[in-house]
Design a protein around this nucleic acid. Structure first.
Lengths: 195, 195, 195, 195
DNA sequence: TATGAATGAGCCTTCATTCAT
DNA sequence: TATGAATGAAGGCTCATTCAT
């Protein structure tokens, strides 16, 4: 990695939590100057403009989240354990895997009406999160540990939507009571499809 | 209503969809000047500052949403029909009851880390949305149309979380495929508890 | 004139000589802040952006020049004296009627390749300067004091071009030797067409 | 020519038309980076700063113009043909010998109030252009083809001023109508002094 | 000689807010 | 109550220039 690439990556890593916490519009380049201790000009050496930097930070936040979830999933053997690991990785919205909460929710709600590029990024992330769930269940069905008649595609949508909704509700509440209910019930629904 | 109160209300009604669409940070007082065709000074006659105006607009958006949902619910007789009406009122996130999408999600994700006042407002709104569901089910149990052993409090949390998560996912996707799955399955879950 | 119009006019008057002296690109809004002792925001209350302000200043500079020349012309009776007054009004490029030199030359050379709007303004000014000369001569021919066979339309072009060229040459030289030669010869050419 | 000198010359050739088109103030070092495909640092290896580079580019533009005019002049034998060649070399300001128009007018109007160095360069160029005309006529008088009583020194000033003024007028007009009038009349004035 | 990362002053513009009228 | 002129801090961004490699 060249010096320039290193700096670029450094800027992304430092700005990502700021964008995820304050939002794109409320994050100023001066916030990033402070977080990186770099000059204004230097930021623009590596990023054309704030929009491009924000896009990189959004990618970074979502990839970081995915890596954390995927890592947790991969540490398990059975499909059930993998699914539970997925749920558990996101069970505490007050100590989220990524500072600032779920980047899909944060940037999705900020961008849905105004920023097609970000909207698309978030949409892909939602799809690939859902696909992760689908893949695990398909493995479980294949190895005979899960009910082959399960409408797992629809379950994946419901499960992911419930988690995402629960994250926002719990963050706003300042406690994870609702998230606990959701976590518990998702696990229950999974258990009902085990063979 | 005095002239002043009328103007104040007018400003709220015009600014509410803007805040809900662009977000608080990205909405400028000049946007509201344009939308109301009022002068800068006039806005400040009625609202101390942008924060106060935003708070009023947020309240308005959430009340409008509740009114619309409640109106749909009230048009039904049975608990089941009321619950279905609740779900149906929110089933199309691309043509939402309130311009800009769900205000709880929009302001909740923008404010969760940075604005305690808004955070509290949204939290209360989530609670009272959930309570609406709870009330309907309690009526259904009381009149004997719904399963008295149903853990309906937990169901209310799940149902509301699923809807909220589904709204964001569908808005970001630009289509309501996921929302349709969610709507269908929520109704299925309700049907399973009917007597 | 309202307060706003007064301020707007004041800004134009103060900025006009700066634009004419330094050029559009080299004039900063901060230069105009200093010259007007107004705040940055105040400047933008009256002018959408720098381009619009520059356009107003250019108009002002050219109108000021025309007024001065026209006033000098109008003080004379005969066509010959009017023509001489025109020439004399522009005979000293080091003490020009408008601070910074001829606005048509200044903005014309700055804008010819890059700014269609300004280019058009300047072109019209050149045409109307030429027309002034034409009008005077037509009066002279009509009243019998000037040669009716004179190709005065072509003379107007030559005379104006010579003056404009001479202005730049003399300003760059720092002395009006060349301009004196031009002034003298233009008058000689005029004298040759008197009856 | 060493590698360094070659690069230096290359930078001048590429930047000259940019400076002549946009002006000194409006030309950024980044414009020159793009035009040369050289790095920022490389530009500063060869030129102390933008001012020095601009000065070199100005020299280059004026020398290029002189070379083109002189070449045209030298292809003719008689004084009259030489003079006509001079005029014809500049007769189309929309397809000028040097991209961006007459460098003396461009840099003269930009620099007359603000940049003594450039002002002097332009003044010398005006003088030497005038001197070229003078030299041709003196040859014509010496060889008996031109009127020895001609006040040719004054004619040279007028002729050059007319051409320069005409260039700006025509560039701003977007057509060469006025320049055609000027060209025609200069030739007529020359013809009147032939023996 | 050539690179490109880094700088910080300065650019144009927008912002929320104040206040005399 | 309503206006709109005035403010100045802050916004995103560009600039000429430096310097280690």
């Amino acid at each position: 990695m060249t010096k320039g690439e290193e700096t670029k990556q450094f800027i992304i890593e430092r700005s990502a939590p700021i964008f995820n916490t304050k939002g794109i519009a409320a994050t100023a380049m001066s916030d990033i100057m402070e977080a990186t201790q770099l000059s204004k000009g230097s930021l623009y050496v590596h990023f054309e403009n704030k929009e491009v930097l924000a896009a990189s930070a959004i990618d970074y936040n979502m990839e970081l989240l995915f890596t954390k979830v995927q890592t947790a999933v991969n540490q398990q053997r059975t499909a059930k354990d993998k699914l539970f690991a997925f749920v558990d990785a996101l069970k505490d919205p007050l100590s989220p895997p990524v500072t600032g909460g779920c980047p899909m929710m944060n940037f999705g709600t900020e961008a849905d009406d105004t920023n097609q590029l970000v909207k698309n990024k978030v949409n892909q992330a939602f799809d690939s999160g859902e696909q992760t769930i689908v893949n695990i269940i398909e493995q479980g069905i294949k190895d005979g540990s899960m009910n082959p008649d399960w409408n797992y595609r629809e379950f994946a949508v419901m499960m992911f939507a419930m988690i995402e909704g629960g994250i926002v509700m719990s963050r706003v509440a300042g406690n994870i009571a609702k998230m606990n209910i959701i976590t518990k019930n998702i696990k229950k629904m999974i258990n009902e499809e085990l063979l």
